[in-house]
Amino acid sequence: MSWMTLSLTLLFVFIPLLLSKTLNLGLERDTMVAALRSTIQLIAVGFVLKFVFDSEHPIFIILMVLLMIVAAVQNARHKGKAIKGITWKLFVTFVAIEVLTQTVLLGLHIVPATAQYIISLSGMVIGNSMVLAILFLNRFTAEVEAHRDESELILSLGGTPKQSINRQLLKSIQASMIPTIESQKTIGLVQLPGMMSGQIIAGADPIQAVQFQLLVVFLLLATAAMTSVLLGFLSYRSLFTERMQLLKIDLD
């Protein structure tokens, strides 16, 4: 696709702008910012990726993955600001998941150890993990605050912090995983996944594209489970004092 052809797709941006203006939705500015930011960010990433792929140097691959993790932490941490040390807890979670998934993928030679594969798959893993972390933190802090009476009852009877919020913790882990599981149940029927569509458009064999997509599906299922569980168990203790007292959670 040439840059000229790409510029024609800007027509799609005019549609929401026109609708917003006509219906007084007040979304013109946000739409413009979204279009502009995605253009600049993606073009910049395109050039960075080209440089990294060409160099094939491990340090650039690691830096690129680290950049993704830092951006994901930055994005997710606001949702868990009530949890002390949430920044490093998210960082540890994302790094652990990245290390684990790449160990399996590269260790078992499922994909070649090249920048092209490592960075693309890392982006999917970390991106999915970030969304899961946001969903989990949102639900978890709300659940704990909503069932404060129950937690205090268990604590007052001599229960441990873990026992006092176990139900809320498991419920939040479950709730944050449901969207991933549900969307994967209808994959290929309701929507063709982005990566698979991209490969097919680029001329790849559909069966080959499906194989890669299945790899991603299984990877994201594992990521979903690991993110919520790891983050949940790293976080819950921070909601209590050293004397096992439940702290007040600021949900704003």
Binding site: D149, E152, M244
Partner: peptide, 23 residues
Amino acid sequence: IEEQSPLSVRRHVGIVLQSSPMI
């Protein structure tokens, strides 16, 4: 109180709050 474990204090000194819920 600080010299005792929170768990043993809470078992020894029981509390029934007005808002104590039934599980």
